[in-house]
Design a binder for these strands. Structure first.
Lengths: 183, 183
DNA sequence: TACTGATAGACTGCATACTGTCAATATTGG
DNA sequence: CCAATATTGACAGTATGCAGTCTATCAGTA
C-alpha cells in the first residue's frame, strides 16, 4: 500500500509512470546499440518505413501515421533529407504540401537495418519468457490503443489513401476521467 | 508472423519499441494534463522526491537514484533551483560537490501535487482491469530491472548513505545477448 | 610528496517531444 | 465571388535525453 503522507522513491519506483519512462529509456538504448552504427534512430526508422509504405504522403498525414508531433517530425524529415534517405517535393495541386518519397539510398539502408532492428526488439523482451512477452504485449497494446487520444500526436491510420485530412478532432479538455478511451 | 521481406507500418505497430514509445508519450501527456498547472514535469517530480528522501545528496548520486543521465540532471536541477524548489550548496569537505536540499516551497509544492500525481498514475492504467494492471506492472518491473544496466543512466539504489561512489561499472560493450541482465 | 587515475560538475552538440505562433494557401459558407 | 475558417509547413521557445569533453579536485600509490 502506498504511504499515506508523503511518497518516497520506493513508491515512485513501483508507479506506472516511472516504469514506462525507464522502459522507453532502455528500449532506445538497445535500439541505438544495435543501429547506432547505421546512424539511424528509432524515430527515423519508423518515419522511413511509413514513407516507403505510403510514397507521396505529406508531413501532416505522416505525423498521424507514426504518432509524432508535427513540429518534431519537421526536424526529423530535415535530417532524413540531409542524409539523402528521402526527398521532399512541392506539388502543383496544393502549394502548401511537400510530398515525401524514399530514395534508393534510403531503401538500401532500411534493408541493411532490418536484422539490427530485429535483434533490438528481441533483446528488449529477452528477460521475459515467451508467454510473458505475449501477455505484456497484449496489455500494452490495449493500454496504448485505449489511451490513443490523450497525447498531442495520436496515431491515425489513414484507411484509403484518397482521404484528406481527418475530421476536425475535438481537442481533449483535460477531462477528469477517460471517457474517450472507451470509445 | 512478421513479413519476411520488408517490414510495414503494420509490423512496426506491434513491435515492443513502438508500444513503449507510445506508452511513454501517453504517460507524459497524462502527467502534464494533471500537473501542468503546477509547472511540474515528471522528471522534476522524481528529482524532488529523491532529494527529500536524501537531503544533502549530490547530483551524481541523485542521477543514479532517479536513473537520469547526469548531463540531463544538471539542467533539471537548474530549473528546480530557479523555481526555488531546491537549493544547491558547496561543501567544505569536497569542493567538487554541491549538495542538494529541498526548500519549504518545494515541500509545499510536492504536497500540493500529490493528488494530481495519483490521478495521473490512475488514469494511465484506467483502460485495464485491476488484475491486468497488476500483471502488466509485474512484467514491466521485471523487464526494467533485468535490463537495468543497458542504458547510460541505470538505476542505482544507494544502500547506506555513507557509501561513496559505486564500484567502477563495466561499460556495456554492445553484447550480443543479455548475460548481464540475469545478474 | 609527486604522479596517476578517478570523480564532480559544467559544458557543447545532437535528437526527440510539445506548446504556441505565423504566413501562405485551400476550402467553404453566405 | 468573397469573407470566414481551416490546413500546411515552418519556426521559436522550453524540456528531456545521450555522447563526449573539459577543468577542478580528490584519493591512492610509488
Amino acid at each position: 500500500m502506498p504511504s499515506k503522507s508523503a511518497p518516497t522513491m520506493q513508491d515512485v519506483y513501483t508507479k506506472p509512470g516511472h516504469l514506462f519512462r525507464r522502459m522507453q529509456q532502455i528500449a532506445v538504448a538497445i535500439f541505438m546499440e544495435e543501429c547506432g552504427a547505421l546512424d539511424l534512430t528509432p524515430v527515423q526508422y519508423a518515419a522511413l518505413v511509413a514513407i516507403r509504405d505510403d510514397p507521396g504522403i505529406d508531413a501532416t498525414r505522416l505525423s498521424a501515421l507514426v504518432a509524432f508531433d508535427r513540429s518534431t517530425l519537421g526536424s526529423v524529415l530535415e535530417r532524413l533529407e540531409a542524409k539523402e534517405l528521402i526527398v521532399r517535393r512541392a506539388t502543383p495541386d496544393d502549394k502548401r504540401v511537400k510530398v515525401l518519397h524514399m530514395t534508393p539510398k534510403g531503401a538500401r539502408l532500411l534493408a541493411k537495418a532490418m536484422p539490427a532492428i530485429d535483434r533490438a526488439q528481441e533483446r528488449m523482451m529477452a528477460p521475459l519468457k515467451p508467454a510473458e512477452r505475449k501477455t505484456i504485449m497484449t496489455l500494452l497494446a490495449k493500454l496504448v490503443h485505449l489511451n490513443n487520444d490523450v497525447s498531442r500526436a495520436p496515431l491515425r491510420i489513414d484507411h484509403g489513401k484518397a482521404q484528406r485530412a481527418a475530421a476536425p478532432r475535438k481537442r481533449r479538455i483535460n477531462g477528469l476521467a477517460n471517457e474517450q478511451t472507451h470509445a
